[in-house]
Computed example of a mutant assay.
Amino acid sequence: MTTEVTGVTVEELATLMKQAAGVTVDPRELERRADTPFSEFGLDSLGLLGIVGELENRNGRALPTDAERCTCPRAFLALVNGSLTTGA
Rank of each mutant, 00 (worst) to 15 (best):
M17C: 05
C70M: 15
G82L: 04
T36M: 15
R28L: 14
I51Q: 02
L55C: 07
L13N: 10
T24D: 10
D26Y: 05
F38H: 08
D35K: 14
F41R: 03
T36N: 08
T86I: 03
K18G: 01
G87V: 11
L49K: 01
V25N: 00
E56M: 03
G7Q: 05
G7Y: 04
T6L: 12
G47H: 07
M17T: 05
L79P: 07
D44A: 06
R28F: 13
A34D: 13
Q19Y: 02
E40S: 11
L63E: 11
A20R: 09
A67H: 03
R33A: 13
L49Y: 05
R61W: 03
V25R: 00
K18Y: 01
E4N: 06
R61Y: 01
D26N: 14
N57G: 15
L16E: 10
D35P: 01
G50C: 13
R74L: 11
T6E: 04
T36H: 13
T15D: 13
A62T: 09
F41E: 04
C70G: 01
T6K: 12
C70W: 00
T65E: 11
E40H: 08
E4S: 10
L43F: 08
G60D: 05
N81E: 04
K18S: 09
R74Y: 02
E40Q: 15
A78R: 12
L16F: 08
L46C: 06
P64D: 07
R74P: 00
N57P: 00
A20I: 00
T24V: 12
P37R: 14
G7A: 12
C70N: 02
E12R: 15
N81K: 12
G42D: 02
V5E: 02
S83E: 04
T85I: 13
A78S: 12
A34R: 15
G42I: 05
C72I: 08
T24L: 05
L84N: 11
D26A: 12
C72T: 15
L49A: 15
N81R: 12
F41W: 08
E40R: 15
I51E: 01
S39H: 08
L77H: 08
S83Y: 07
L13S: 04
L84P: 10
L43M: 07
T9H: 01
P37T: 09
V23W: 08
L77K: 12
P27I: 05
T2M: 07
S83P: 06
V25D: 00
T86W: 01
E12S: 08
S83M: 09
